[in-house]
Nucleic acid binder design. Structure first.
Length: 519
RNA sequence: GCGGGUGUAGUUCAGUGGUAGAACGUCAGCUUCCCAAGCUGAAUGUCGCCGGUUCGACUCCGGUCACCCGCUCCA
């Protein structure tokens, strides 16, 4: 059992955020101007950490085809990369359903301060009544319905049965009737606002004139860029179904309430893949991706009780997920969701919803002619959509390990592959030839590993302080040159997680580190 | 968007109607042969921002921004 498994209280987000600031992982965006809600900047170590995570995904998923796994068809998995624009023709978002879906009208209650999705509110009235007093309740909420029945009976001064009432959607009522409604949990009418749209897509204007004709949207997901290029990729890359197209990119959502550090930001990065397959094979590919993605997150360090795979219930399937098809979330138990879990990645069987929508809207053929089957069809699609920003956050949360027995009181237990600082080189004392050996070793290691992360050289202050700094930065290994090095040509390796030390040859350090870093 | 809370050096926090401190960290020097030790010295804040009251505000009032908690939302 490792330390994570025995954790029964979450770490403090305040402490984690303080460390992120202190050590240069994440800063509040526009901090010197008072900040800006929902945006975060990555500092030097955070930027490298994020890049390492993105590289791990890019290399494993795309270049190595699911880490070299064999697909359910017994063959290697083929994935090609793509990089598409943040701004696309607005018709893309109409076809994808985002313009509609992102404009959900909401109703606020002035009394209870609650907010409801207008299309989820139902109105209970006396049968046959088309106006006057009504009682609003959330659909499928038995408790609210029972209360509404009781209040309506009281208002009408009679016992009522189900046959005495009618239920109509709130959105079907004329606006002026909203004032006659009694909201959930309220006694008197008039507390509900008219339905108002909250657009979650950032709007902008193309060209300098900025009229409504020039409206465009910042993408709320990278997936649509893949779907609209499906035909291009098919026509130019000699790919055959089954295959996947994947990309990493920034997306924007004008969240009502950005919260929980970087978890719900207005600007964030995604790592998405759309994997196309024959409709008859979608189930097995779904299961393949679901399991692979879970394993992948474990492989980069999110092990133990804080990570889980959760299949969705039927009633929470998204609009694009086909009946009975799979949708699963890889979830992480963030400190702010504890003891619950929050989304890290969604794996969904989207059937042919997206390609068909774009085919209908654009009239471009989204079909694939399958030589082997001698069949023409619109492929089904399995979508593993991961949050890069959320991945970084989960990695930070998982790495944060309090340890009262060490000087820093806390260390960041990054997987060596993700650690922004790969190694540090210290002369035990800053004299007697040690600094010179340290400089040489540092130069060698930097030459060899500098593309993967920082290699630090630190000669100042006592060795304890230097180790402590590296603990907070999450450096997995420190190499220390001491008085014996010049004669025995060996250095001491200090392991971050165990504090253990071992002696290895000066010339063997590069190979040794290569074997530890992974990736 | 609503309600509550918070906002002082990099971090964690004191503080008083008369223009600011501690600890730790950071930096420099000495010391130091393995875990923030010791000694000496240094830098750092228009006390979130704007406005008002006042002879004078970090301290009172208003607004605003940001963060935290709850509600809502998260396709």
């Amino acid at each position: 059992m490792n330390q994570t498994d025995t954790t029964d209280t979450p770490i403090s987000m305040d402490d984690l955020m303080a460390l992120c600031k202190r050590r240069g992982f994440i800063y509040q965006a526009s901090e010197i101007y008072g900040g800006i809600n929902g945006f975060w900047d990555y500092g030097p170590l955070g930027a490298q950490l994020k890049r390492n995570l993105a590289d791990a995904w890019w290399n494993d998923v795309i270049m190595m085809g699911c880490s070299g796994r064999t697909g359910p068809n017994g063959k290697p998995v083929r994935i090609v990369p793509l990089d598409t624009c943040i701004i696309q023709n607005p018709k893309v978002w109409e076809a994808s359903g985002h313009v509609g879906g992102f404009n959900d009208p909401m109703v606020d209650c002035r009394e209870t301060k609650s907010r409801y999705r207008a299309d989820h509110l139902m109105v209970l009235r006396e049968a046959g009544a088309s106006e006057g007093r009504g009682y609003a309740f959330m659909e499928n909420d038995e408790e609210q319905l029972a209360r509404a029945m009781k209040l309506l009976g009281k208002y009408l001064r009679k016992d009522i049965a189900e046959s005495d009432v009618s239920v109509t959607p709130l959105v079907s009522l004329p606006k002026e009737q909203i004032a006659d409604l009694v909201g959930p949990g309220v006694k008197d009418p008039g507390t509900l606002t008219e339905p108002r749209a909250f657009n979650l897509m950032f709007k902008t204007y193309i060209g300098a004139t900025a009229t409504e004709d020039d409206v465009a949207y910042l993408r709320p997901e990278t997936a649509q860029g893949i779907f609209i290029n499906f035909k291009n990729v098919i026509d130019t890359m000699r790919v055959r179904v089954p295959f996947g197209i994947a990309n990493i990119g920034t997306s924007f959502r004008n969240e009502v309430t950005p919260r929980n550090f970087t978890f719900r930001s207005r600007e964030f990065e995604q790592m998405e893949c759309e994997f196309f397959c024959h409709p008859s094979e979608s189930r097995e590919w779904y299961e393949f991706w679901r399991d692979y993605r879970m394993d992948w997150w474990e492989s980069i360090g999110l092990k133990g009780d804080n990570l889980r795979l959760r299949e969705h219930d039927e009633d929470e399937l998204a609009h694009y997920a086909k009946e009975g098809a799979g949708t699963a979330d890889v979830e992480y138990r963030y400190p702010f969701t504890y003891p619950d879990f929050g989304e890290l990645e969604g794996v969904a069987d989207r059937a042919n919803f997206d390609l068909t929508s774009h085919q209908t809207a654009s009239r471009a053929k989204m079909e694939f002619f399958d030589q082997e089957r001698n069949e023409r069809y619109v492929p089904h699609c399995i979508e593993p959509a991961a949050g890069l920003s959320r991945g970084v956050l989960a990695v930070l949360c998982e790495a944060y390990t309090p340890d009262p027995n060490r000087p820093s009181k806390v260390f960041m237990k990054f997987h060596p592959r993700l650690a922004p600082i790969k190694a540090a080189v210290f002369p035990l004392v800053n004299k007697e030839g040690m600094p010179e050996i340290a400089e040489k070793l540092h130069a060698d290691l930097h030459q060899r590993f500098g593309r993967r992360g920082f290699v630090e050289l630190d000669v100042k202050q006592n060795i304890g302080k230097r180790y402590a700094r590296m603990d907070e930065a999450g450096t997995p290994f420190c190499f220390t040159i001491d008085g014996d090095t010049s004669s025995d040509h060996a250095v001491t390796v200090r392991h971050r997680d165990t504090l253990e030390q071992e002696r290895i040859g000066l010339d063997a350090v590069g190979e040794w580190l290569e074997g530890k870093l992974g990736g």
